[in-house]
Design a protein around this nucleic acid. Structure first.
Lengths: 220, 220
DNA sequence: GTCTATACAATGATAGAC
DNA sequence: GTCTATCATTGTATAGAC
């Protein structure tokens, strides 16, 4: 599996390998315009390669998009795992800290250079080809760690209860990730916007923690 | 706007009008196979009409799908509004009852003859064409009633707080609606399944109410 | 007004030459 | 590895029969 993120833009795009250029062009175009609006011909035009290069390097258009998704999702999940590890060491048994580790990475990416990657991930969840949505559904390894951690922190909660609440929490998280705040903006007459990442993170964790029956956070 | 639901299957499909047959064929195929997998030719084949009939009656494939979405979403929102009205009369000021009215209709449709319509709505939210997702984002009239009701029931909560929490609640609701319980099933080793509608409804309302800072429901 | 046959441009994919 | 040429399929549009 290629990992373009480890060597991004060290060379001008025109000098980078064709495979990497296709990866970057596809990610950029899709994150801007969406999956449906971007054709294979658009991608190869931006990448400066021939139409058949996609087939040669990635097999099909869908497999190219799946590869991009895998790379970026892996990066996001790695950040989550690291934060979870820290939380388990520094604040063992603190369910709220676990939820924080789950939520924080995505909110950080919003105003990063990883904004493009986040937008791609968000679009992939909703618009992406079947292979991508299939992968999302069935690849749950990275989530088990969080379930196990929560079970340790909340020993009194029946496991079935905990799993359902975790399921609902993912709903909040992904709806948030969908970057579709337009509806909220309209509902609030422009008052509510996700510009303040710190406040957004706090609101997210507050809501999910409440769903788990945890008391509100102490004012810091 | 046609409303096929008011006269469903009163005639054999082969005798119904072409426009209605196209509507029903498209809804059934999409709810089974998804938006991407169903072509215009699949639809007209099942409906027993010519390829050009879609263009004649609905303009484009996307507009056909948008029409189906509008009809079914209107039905769902009408049920929600009725439940909200009842809740406001019988249990005024009870925020939990308001959330219940928001959540219940979709859970009822799961095992109805409206299962097909619900599956279509769920798919439309994630896979549907841009026009559909645009409509979802911008058409918030039916939600304002719920926001206003919650504001009355929770006068101490700042409006910005309330709107954010409502936004998160919609995330839970739509993730639930996505009928994508496969991930939860895998995570729970098959333990958690949405078969018990009553329990699912209770869990949903419990989680969302907790997110709003409401105390757990009294055991009934 | 309704419906059908046909045609069209654009798409994802592939075979085979170099 | 890269390219040109070509393929079947897609959504859509048009002309004309009933």
């Amino acid at each position: 599996m290629s990992d373009p993120s480890t060597k991004p833009n060290t060379h001008p795009a025109s000098e980078a390998g064709a495979k990497l250029r296709i990866f970057q062009a596809a990610e950029a175009l899709v994150s801007e315009q969406g999956f449906d609006a971007v054709s294979t011909r658009d991608i190869v035009a931006k990448a400066g390669v021939n139409i058949a290069a996609v087939n040669y390097h990635y097999g099909t258009k869908h497999r190219l998009l799946l590869e991009i998704f895998r790379v970026r999702a892996t990066e996001l999940n790695r950040e989550r795992s690291q934060l979870l590890r820290v939380a388990m060491e520094e604040r063992p048994g603190d369910a709220r800290a676990i939820l924080h580790a789950l939520v924080e990475p995505a909110t950080l990416w919003i105003s990063d250079e990883r904004r493009v990657a986040l937008r791609f991930l968000n679009r992939a969840r909703s618009e992406g080809p079947l292979e991508v949505r299939e992968t999302i559904r069935t690849d749950v390894r990275h989530l088990r760690r969080f379930v196990d951690a929560l079970a340790l922190a909340l020993p009194a909660m029946p496991r079935e209860d905990l799993l359902w609440r975790f399921h609902f929490a993912l709903g909040v998280l992904h709806y948030n990730q969908s970057a579709d705040y337009e509806r909220l903006s309209i509902l609030s007459d422009g008052t509510c916007a996700p510009d303040d990442r710190v406040a957004l993170l706090r609101r997210l964790v507050d809501f999910i923690a409440g769903g788990f029956g945890l008391p509100p956070a102490a004012a810091s």
